[in-house]
Computed example of a mutant assay.
Amino acid sequence: MKWSEISIHTTNEAIEPISNILHEAGASGVVIEDPFDLTKEREDQFGEIYQLDPKDYPVEGVIIKAYLPVNSFLGETVDGIKEAINGLILHNIDIGLNKVSISEVNEEEWATAWKKYYHPVKISERFTIVPTWEEYTPVNSDELIIELDPGMAFGTGTHPTTVMCIQALERTVQRGDQIIDVGTGSGVLSIAAAMLGASEISAFDLDQVAVTTAKMNIKLNKVQNTVNVSQKNLLDGVEGMVDGIVANILAEVIVRFTDDAARIVKKGGYFIASGIIQQKKQDVKDALNKSGFEIQETLLMEDWVALIARRV
């Protein structure tokens, strides 16, 4: 089979929404070429440092790549992707150069080319994300290993927004907690919560492809008895009370359901929100406060923000 590589030259701010657009268009995963990765310092306790080739990265901005099958609908799919990206301007998201290019690759190249970007990465005190095809020996006896295959998952679990969510989960999840994961994507946050001792996790995503992907990753990590994945728009129709909510999605989406979150999170329970760019931080804080949450901690990584809030 022939595949088409779509490459988008954009900004860090636009990584999450454009990745989501590509995912919804049928891409099984994305590759992000960010020149910041060439120079950023990694603390010893987090991250496996490996050699990167500067020729693979743009001088400025970031390049997002995804792969789509070459078929009779490819032209319409690409046009839809371009239109959706241009629409991000309406949400005050900087899309930068927004240069979109298309090239053709064969299946063998597509199936293996992106693997050079993905290695075992220790993202917190306890968690390490490991690609399924690599051997990895735990460094500590209490280390928690999450296996992911970006060939079937949306994202690798190592983006700053995901890393901060997992670190926030480490600080808040208590054994036996009931949690909702809104916009689960690859399911990585639900997997982490289950490994931390949560007894029941409901993982929601509006995209059926994401639901299927999350179920596969959850089964891969043997937490299918704890995590239930279903197709749902945010918290629509959700009843009952839970100990916490985690959501790694756009700030513009988070502010739309803070009232619903306050309705179902127990007093003293938590709301972990990520996927927030610096410019939108105060908007999310204001929405959470107005709905009855109190901001307890703000996590920062690169240009991204995550919030830990408590229901008062």
Rank of each mutant, 00 (worst) to 15 (best):
E135V: 00
S124E: 11
V229S: 02
I277Y: 12
G176A: 11
L74V: 08
E239T: 14
K285M: 13
I49G: 03
Q296G: 13
G47S: 01
N12C: 07
P150D: 00
I308R: 02
D56F: 13
I15P: 07
Y67A: 08
S141F: 12
D286M: 01
I81L: 10
T77M: 05
F271S: 05
V163F: 03
I123W: 02
G183Y: 04
G75H: 10
T132R: 06
D149A: 06
Q278R: 15
A273L: 07
F204T: 10
T112M: 05
D243C: 01
G80W: 02
R311S: 14
W110Y: 12
K219W: 07
L97W: 06
V238I: 15
I32D: 05
A247H: 04
L300S: 12
M164W: 07
T158L: 04
V130M: 03
I218G: 07
A262G: 01
A261P: 09
L74D: 11
W114D: 10
Q278F: 07
G155D: 05
D37K: 13
L144A: 01
L234N: 02
A210K: 04
D34W: 02
I129E: 00
V227A: 14
F257V: 03
A111P: 05
C165M: 06
I245K: 10
E135Q: 01
G268I: 00
T158R: 05
P69T: 08
